[in-house]
Amino acid sequence: MFMRLVRRAVTAPAVVVLVLGAAACGSTGSASPAGADGTAPSPAGDGTLTVFAAASLTGAFTELGRTFEAADPGTSVRFNFGSSATLAQQIVAGAPADVFAAASPATMKTVTDASLASSPAVFARNRLQIAVPADNPAGIDELGDLADAKVKVALCAAQVPCGAAAVKALQAAGLTVTPVTLEQDVKATLTKVTLGEVDAALVYATDVLASGGEVRGIDFPEADKAINDYPIAALTGAPAGSPARRFVDLVLSPQGEDVLTAAGFQVP
């Protein structure tokens, strides 16, 4: 399922313009004042900034995109949200991306190995939670409960970051869990919980938060052993002060941190 959300963010209130200017300067010090270089060349051209980002960033980045556009009305931000691995392959295959925000260092490595990006920065961390249906039918309170054969568990497939993290966490706990399914991404895993098809799943805290009240998240200590780093990089060819660099700066700024924290991420 190549679920891709290509969105054109709408212009947000102008109030944020000042905040953005301050944030951009504060984070790296290398960015020019907002708007001074609205005509800076971008690989995508036409004043469009194309951001490829992990699906778990959908909420936070959409908001940051609005902020960015409000500060720089000459640039519109387009997002391509999806599985980090798929996005990395699309970028390697020549997809017109300006910024890549991945859910794992490994997927970012695919892009840096191809010399398409350099010096990625970790901007967020995501930790796992046990997600259970709101009524918690199997009465789960800790990771050990997942090893019960009667408990139906969904995990992400080991090939995707949330699955790799789950494997690490379970190993750290010394548990053997037999899931009924290895889902292709974290959203699909969460859906199985939302619909009550499984009793529990290991997903990111951010996904639990984004699900509203439909799913309950349970913290567990072993999650600390499986923290997922989210790296971001402007793709090669984007000069300092270009919209790509400025977007990365915005994500790394205190304002970016606020948005990410509100979405359930931890920031480094």
């Binding site: 969904a154 399914t181 290895l182 889902e183 699909a188």
Partner: peptide, 13 residues
């Protein structure tokens, strides 16, 4: 078939 299968039946080797 991919989408309906992975959604309804999940994915387990």
């Amino acid at each position: 078939e991919f989408g309906a299968t992975i959604t309804f039946a999940g994915n387990f080797p």
